[in-house]
C-alpha cells in the first residue's frame, strides 16, 4: 500500500508495469487514471491545491479500508498537485487482488472516496479567467453505494 503526492508528472505505463511486477499472490490488477479534461479547447491549465498532512491521513484511511474490505494484495495511489496542462494525468489508482471483482470494486471505492473525501481542490484557467471547480452532487451521491 503506497501513496505518492507529487507536483511532477508520472509515467503511467512504467508505474502500472512496476506495480504489476511487484505482485506475487495477485491474479488481477486494475488501474484507473484521471486526466485533465480540456473542455472544448477552452482550458489553458489546471491548478490543484491540497492540504498537506490531512491528504495523507485521509487517503491512507481509505486505502486501509479498501484493503480490509476486499482483501487486497496491494494498492497504489499517485495524485499530483500544482499546475497541470490539458491532457496530463492528474492521478492514478492501482489495486491488486486474487480475483478481478475485488480489484475493480476496490479501485471504484478508492476513486469515489478520492473525489469527495480527499482534500484536493481544482481550479481551471481559461480564456475567461480562472474558476474553482464545483463539487458535483453525483460525486457525493456515489458514496452512498459503499
Amino acid at each position: 500500500m503506497r501513496l505518492r503526492l507529487q507536483a511532477e508528472p508520472f509515467a503511467l505505463g512504467a508505474e502500472a508495469q512496476a506495480f504489476a511486477e511487484a505482485q506475487a499472490g495477485a491474479g488481477a490488477v486494475v488501474t484507473f487514471t484521471g486526466l485533465v479534461r480540456d473542455n472544448a479547447g477552452q482550458l489553458s491549465a489546471m491548478e490543484i491545491e491540497h492540504y498537506p498532512g490531512m491528504t495523507e491521513k485521509a487517503i491512507g484511511a481509505m486505502m486501509d479500508q479498501a484493503q480490509a474490505r476486499w482483501a487486497l494484495e496491494d494498492a497504489l495511489v499517485i495524485h499530483r498537485h500544482g499546475r497541470l496542462l490539458p491532457g496530463e494525468a492528474i492521478m492514478m489508482v492501482a489495486t491488486a487482488a486474487r480475483h478481478r471483482a475485488e480489484a475493480f470494486a476496490a479501485a471504484e471505492f478508492l476513486m469515489d472516496y478520492l473525489k469527495s473525501r480527499a482534500p484536493f481542490w481544482k481550479k481551471e484557467f481559461g480564456a475567461d479567467g480562472a474558476e474553482w471547480v464545483a463539487a458535483r452532487d453525483a460525486d457525493e451521491a456515489a458514496l452512498t453505494r459503499w
Binding site: M91, M111, L114, K115, W121, W132
Partner: peptide, 10 residues
C-alpha cells in the same frame, strides 16, 4: 481548524 469548500479530487 481548517475551512475549505467541498473537495474536488480524483
Amino acid at each position: 481548524v481548517a475551512f475549505f469548500p467541498p473537495m474536488t479530487g480524483g
